[in-house]
């Protein structure tokens, strides 16, 4: 059992959890993920690690309430336990000094981008960070990002803050203004990563992406998370989740992400009916 030591709402639709998981905290590195299962009936949910504290033995995750599992997770409070919490899984990011790095975090991609920004900054890179979300109140981890960034920019879909548009558009603007980057890290919805790649390809800047494919075991056993990278099938859980963005077949990936849309909706209906019934 894994205790929630802190829970905090960070945006209208997402919540931060600090979970006691000393074994994971001891060995995890930026870029890796965990899988949790709320209770006996729960599914295994992969979540990228948003922060970790080796001394306290805790892992931070930020979760958007999008379906039954994430809504059920949000029913737990500080002091409650998550039944299963396993990791660290996946390959971590190779962190070194490359020069000027631009990191794009889109929506829920902001959380997993954070440990990478921190590690890259600590490795001595000049860090430019672009955070984007649907609206101003969904721009999370601002202070943390600012602490490890030399420049921070915001974009919102509704224009409530920063550039009215997408993170990829902000990147394009900066590049057109003559800014130079040695590496781009883009994390967020597949559409956002694909749009970013379109820009970085044009300017020929190496780009890393982190994929949140559908997984079951997370250890290479099931192949649910397979993705085509440079024409070859790779498993996001063990070969990734970080890949060379130029090589990822995003069209295929986006189609694969829709595999369980219908079931997710029916599960949500079932859950809501059960809730109604209980009232």
């Amino acid at each position: 059992m894994f205790k929630i030591v802190k829970k905090k709402r960070v945006s209208p639709d997402s919540t931060l959890y600090v979970v006691e998981a000393p074994l994971v905290a001891r060995s995890c590195e930026p870029g890796q993920f965990i899988i949790l299962r709320i209770d006996e009936k729960g599914e295994r949910i992969p979540l990228t690690i948003a922060d970790f504290d080796r001394q306290k033995g805790t892992i931070t995750i930020i979760v958007q309430e999008v379906g039954v599992s994430t809504i059920r997770l949000n029913e737990l409070n500080e002091g409650d336990c998550i039944r299963d919490f396993v990791g660290p899984l996946g390959k971590h990011m190779e962190v070194g000094k490359v020069g000027r790095v631009c990191t794009l975090g889109g929506g829920l991609g902001i959380a997993p981008a954070y440990p990478k920004v921190r590690a890259l900054k600590e490795a001595g890179n000049y860090m430019v960070t672009i955070l984007g979300a649907r609206s101003s109140d969904r721009l999370i981890l601002r202070e943390e990002m600012a602490r490890y960034s030399d420049e921070v920019y915001y974009t919102t879909d509704d224009g409530s803050e920063g550039l009215h548009g997408f993170v990829s558009q902000k990147l394009e603007q900066l590049l057109k203004e003559g800014q130079k980057y040695d590496l781009v890290v883009a994390i967020g919805p597949a559409l956002m990563m694909r749009a970013t790649i379109k820009v970085t390809k044009e300017f020929n800047i190496p780009t890393l992406v982190s994929l949140d494919s559908i997984m079951v075991d997370g250890t290479g056993m099931c192949g649910s998370c397979r993705v085509t990278v440079a024409g070859k099938t790779q498993f996001a859980c063990v070969d990734g989740p970080i890949f060379d963005g130029f090589a990822v077949d995003f069209d295929e990936m986006m189609k694969r992400q829709c595999r369980y849309n219908k079931e997710e909706k029916s599960a949500l209906d079932h859950y809501c009916q059960a809730k109604e019934g209980a009232k």
Binding site: K41, E43, V68, S69, V216, C222, G223, S224, R226
Partner: peptide
């Protein structure tokens, strides 16, 4: 990699370990 192609491992794990045959009572 089309949707609807499973490894037997994935298909069986969803059913046996995760009790997918009891969905939506079970979440998987």
């Amino acid at each position: 990699n089309y949707n609807g192609v499973y490894s037997a491992n994935e298909f069986l794990t969803r059913v046996n370990l995760m009790k997918g045959y009891l969905f939506p009572e079970y979440d998987t």
